[in-house]
Design a binder for these strands. Structure first.
Lengths: 368, 368
DNA sequence: GTGAAAGCGCTAACAG
DNA sequence: CTGTTAGCGCTTTCAC
């Protein structure tokens, strides 16, 4: 049998094609149809692997006759190039990595979608790695991001809502590798985030303007898989705005619950039952706002007369429920991050620790 | 300068380390900190690369003295192995690919989460590829899945809600590569899906039992990025159940809208304004059901007295709204798929075209 | 216990 | 227009 590798490999001992090589090994899928490589195509067409590669990638640099023969071999062997190997050899990947925690926090998918929209157009492949804060804290994965960055397999990496070890960040910064952070702060990298305090100010100022007297705050505990939840900053913004307006902050009107409708509902029901109850509540997330709505509903409070409610995020359902809320760009932030990444890849010199603050917008509906 | 490659590479012309080699090229990141490879570690420790590899992977097979020296070099160079290269050389990846369209259809994230939960425990890496039906239809990507399967870079691939070219499926089937399909049917692969007709039967039977006389159906148009939306099958199930109960099907009580609250709302408002309006509506998705709720609300219809509403999916908000709906396992289906995949990888012989039907459950709330 | 070298599948620089 | 070969960074036989 004439083998492809007779010609191109120097194993003086035994000629090996990917075919007979496979048969030497105790492979479990011995019965599987073996994949043909560029060597097989070259052998069948009677040319070198370089010519096969050229035929596929730069057809114009190959004579028509050769091209025809190669293509025929490609057809016959049903050859599909290994694009990973190709990228490796090319030292250029057209592919970026996205690290993100997979959870149901609203906006996760939208953001991812925004990113994918941009890179689809740029013909850049998107590889999403599921990874959460807990995993990152794990010893074994302490260098996870760094190894992704230095692997040379990706043109860049976008990290979503994850806390990254400061040392690791430092090492990556030294490599000048294109990396964009979403919802995570670091002075050494381009970062995208929303101004949570400003968002809170927007909401509280609106409530003040509407003449509510006792404006309370509902925040949420950090999610285990997440880095920052923004709740803290929103609380601070709430306090600042209140104080700036000459109002006092009533600790009894501040409540932190889980990030769930149910937990918020239970806690807020109690809060709304105290004599000196708030007449307006700014919630750190729409999910919390839903809990508030449910509690108010059950207590027979009229929204917004007895109680005004303002949320944060503008999740799909907010419009349906008439919930006033602070909208943050989700798909938009993904696009923004992707376009920034594209620039960084094309011109690494532009890697500056720019901190982009995404625009926030108060959407007034019927709950306030 | 003594270079790592002097010893291990046969470039008779010029000794090259990954370091001085880099400096030869006009790299844009010339100033970047270069990553050290196993060759550098070997050189520094004065051993072969094989020994470095062994030290890291099978420490017991290396003498203590050598091990110490190698580890010191590793430390000094801050060496991190390239796990992609390692996997390649090892012919074993501990990593599977998940192909999924990134959209906001409920359940997408939950399913992904279910998958990731299982593989996290199995220490198997999860690479998620964003790819939708449109992309798949594209000439250029016609062999996308196949090339992933044959790349040898993944131990298996899970495909979510995507239509796959029959020919491609055939070729992949021939390779006996571990592949699991979610929400897509093919007799040659293990498949996970819900029995949409049965789900519809559950819903309609419930409405019949509650004595509703004119049960209508609200379906939705296929999403561009999706393969099957289930709406068609649910409609068929609705019709079958009605007929089996001796009821007639009123075409005026069947309406197909977009997959959006707003569009459903607009269309259903008209439908509910006809003289002979339905007194119950089974919706192919909760999103449609929300549109119905909104329309009914605006028309002053009492739910469930004037109009009963049953949805499908059981999205988060359904509970909050008291929506009766058909629940399908989402995180559960992801787990199921992952566990199936694990079995396939461990014992490829078990690859049978098993069609798993996931359990459906009617959750009765206040809307019916 | 350790080293040499093949091999993974391809691209690109260079030579002819 | 075509072939040769280094190189990507590692693991894994096979000798010594």
């Amino acid at each position: 049998m004439l083998c492809a590798n007779d010609m191109y490999r120097d194993s003086g001992f035994q000629p090996l094609t990917s075919n007979n090589f496979d048969s030497l090994l105790p492979k479990p899928d011995d019965w599987a149809v073996t994949k043909s490589s560029i060597y097989d195509v070259a052998a069948l067409a009677g040319v070198s692997i370089a010519t096969v590669s050229r035929t596929l990638n730069q057809p114009h640099r190959v004579s028509e006759a050769t091209r025809a023969r190669v293509m025929e071999a490609v057809q016959k062997l049903d050859y599909t190039p290994d694009f990973e190997a190709a990228a490796r050899a090319r030292h250029h990947n057209d592919r970026i990595a996205v690290l993100a925690p997979l959870n149901t926090y609203p906006g996760f998918t939208q953001r991812l979608r925004g990113i994918s929209l941009v890179f689809e157009e740029l013909q850049t492949e998107l590889i999403i790695f599921q990874i959460d804060a807990q995993k990152l804290r794990n010893e074994q994965h302490s260098k996870y991001i760094e190894s992704l960055a230095t692997s040379g397999r990706y043109d860049g990496v976008i990290v979503m809502s994850l806390p990254i070890d400061a040392q690791e960040l430092t090492r990556i910064a030294e490599t000048h590798f294109p990396m964009v952070l979403i919802e995570t702060s670091d002075s050494r990298f381009p970062t995208l985030k929303v101004d949570n305090k400003e968002g809170a100010r927007l909401a509280v100022a609106h409530l003040l303007e509407k003449n509510y007297k006792n404006i309370g705050f509902i925040g949420f505990n950090a999610l285990a898989s997440y880095s920052t939840n923004g709740s803290k900053a929103r609380e601070q913004g709430y306090i600042d705005t209140l104080l700036a307006a000459g109002r006092s902050v009533n600790p009894n009107h501040i409540l932190i619950s889980d990030y769930s409708i149910e937990d918020t509902y239970l806690k807020v029901k109690l809060m709304l039952s105290i004599p000196d109850r708030p007449d307006a509540l700014f919630c750190a997330s729409d999910i919390n706002a839903l809990g508030v709505l449910k509690a108010a509903n059950e207590l027979g409070l009229d929204i917004p007369k007895d109680l005004a409610v303002v949320g944060f995020d503008d999740i799909d359902i907010a419009d349906y429920l008439g919930l006033t809320t602070v909208r943050q760009p989700l798909e938009g932030s993904g696009k923004e991050a992707a376009m920034l990444m594209d620039k960084l890849i094309k011109d690494p010199a532009t890697i500056k620790p720019s901190q982009v603050l995404l625009p926030l917008e108060l959407i007034v509906r019927t709950s306030s």
